[in-house]
Amino acid sequence: MFSFCADPASLGDLAWMACYLTTGKHMAIYTSVFTVLLLLAITAPTALAFGFIGASSARSHFPPLSWIGKAYIAVVRGVPDIAFFLFFVIALDQLFEWIRHEIKCPDWTDSIWQGNDFVVCDIAKLPLGNAPQWVHETYGFMLAVLTFAIVFGAFAANVLYGAMRAVPHNQLETAEAYGMSRRQVYWRILVPQMWVFALPGLSNLWMVLIKATPLLFLLGVEDIVYWARELGGAKTARFTDYPHGDWRMWYFLALLVFYLLFTRVSEIVLDKVMRKLTHGQATLAGEAQRKAA
C-alpha cells in the first residue's frame, strides 16, 4: 500500500509490519469486519420482526396458531443453536431450490432425492451455475442472515411474550371498558407499553447476537474467523513476500480484543438507553432514579 513496500525483505521491523498489515488480503479481513456489522444491522430488525410474529401468534386465541408460536419458542430453546445454524443453511437452500424446481420444471418426472443426492433441474439451481462469484457470496450471506433471524427470532419471541404478559392487566381491562375491540386493545394499549418490559431482555439478546456472529464462519461465509485462520497460518517465502511462522494465535487474540471492545461499548450505550427509558416510569428503577435526583 505504501510506496516503500516495493521490497519487503529489506525493510525494518516497524515498516515491515506497516506493509504487512496493509496487503490486499489484510484489506479483506478489515472489510469482513463490515460483513459482521452488516449482518448485525440486517439481523437485529429481522429477528425482532420474527420475534414479534412469534410472540403474537403464541398469544393468539386460535389454538393451532398459538401452538405453532409456542412450539417455535420451545424447540429453539431446547436444542443447541449451532445445530439450527447448520440445519437451516442446508434446509433453506433445498427449500428454495425445490420451490423453483416445482415452478420452472413442472414436467420433470424423476424424484429430487436420488440415492444420496438432491437433484433439481439446471434452471432451478440457486444461484445459477453460470452466475458470477459475487452472486454466490451474496446468496450465501442472505441464507446466513435468514438463519440468524429465524433462530434469534425465537429468542426475541420469548422475550416479547414475557413482556406482553408483564403489561399490567388493568390497563387492558380499562381499554375494554372503553369499548375498544380486541385488535384495538392489542395495537393501541399492549404493544406501545410492552417495550419497557422487553428492553432488558432485548439488550441481553443483542449481546448474545454479537457473540454469535463468529458462527458465520460455520455457515460458509468468508468472515473474520475465516480470514484470521487464512492469514495467520505459517507462510514460506515461496508463496508470499511476507514470510512468517504460525501467527494464528495473535490473530485470534486480536479478534478476542475486538469482541471485548464491541460488547463493552454496547453495554455502555444500552445502559444509557435504559436509563433514558426508565426515567419517569412507575417501576422500581424509575422510583430509585427519582429519589436520587
Binding site: 484470521a228 504460525d246 494465535m249 485470534f252 479478534l255 478476542l256 460488547t263
Partner: peptide, 18 residues
C-alpha cells in the same frame, strides 16, 4: 463473558499449539 466462546476455543487451541 464479553467474548464469544467460539473465539475463545480458537484462541486457546492456537495458544496451546504454539
Amino acid at each position: 463473558r464479553g467474548s464469544p466462546l467460539f473465539i475463545q476455543f480458537f484462541f486457546a487451541y492456537f495458544l496451546f499449539l504454539s
